[in-house]
Amino acid sequence: MGQFLSRHRILLPVFSLAVLLAATFYMQPRAMSYFGINLLFNLAVPIALATVAQMMIMMVNDIDLSLGTFVSLVACVTATFLNDSPLLGVLILAALILTYAGMGAVIHALDLPAIVVTLGMSFVWGGLALFVLPSPGGTSPGWLRALMTVKPPLMPMAVVASILIALVTHFLIIRSGIGTVLRGVGGNARSVARAGWSVVRLKALAYGLSGLFGVLSGMALVGLTTSADANIALRYTLLSIAGVILGGGEFIGGKVSPVGAVIGALTLALAASFLSFMRLSPDWQIGAQGAILILVLTARLIFARRENATG
């Protein structure tokens, strides 16, 4: 069983989500509907995108502490520039993605600790967000709002979007050649360099992809909330890291799972709703959320140990 699970490391996240979902439906049968599932999960879509963004960074053995403020900044740009003058908005967002790529290149070239650089950048993003949108407001572009509230047949938007994100990133990271090389940077950067790849470029690419998904996350968020706030997504930094780990990713070694990351994000969002349905006092909710996290990680660790023991 241990070997089976470790070979299919995606099973544990899927199992956690299924158990939590069953418990939620038991507590709140009303949630078991097209409308209910959409309400449960639609705010998880930007979290899933942010988690994928964080995964891109963790894939190359770094960690991004600026993601929450970056997504907030994107949300502010989306609600202002992208709505008022779309061309300028697109240019700004493209520049933000390039900045992310540049950040990756600099971190590698100067051998800086990513944790410090991104922490510093979080203040830059936060300041810029306040500059763009000093007081809460702005409007979501109409097409974005329509996209995030679309009602596809059979499955609610939140589910369709999650599947789409998981599939696209799975092919990009797991199946494609460049994805394999990128994971190789996390696994053993030196052998990737010996094989003739430029690690600086690869890191820039990983960070650039992270920036891209960060931008998508901020845009999705504004599509849901209809307007922005400079502090709107601060929670995403930690949520995204937890989501990656919950989904079977590792901090080092380039071991990541895009499908797992999306499931991890959904699990985190669902855990909060589940605790709210349980009418747990808010004083206990953060603790309980942490307990769920520790529970899942413990299960993973036990299986990983067994795998090592049995060889």
Partner: peptide, 13 residues
Amino acid sequence: ATEQAAQIQNLIL
């Protein structure tokens, strides 16, 4: 705000 938005959606449910 994101927490409270989720909370409101839960209250609807």
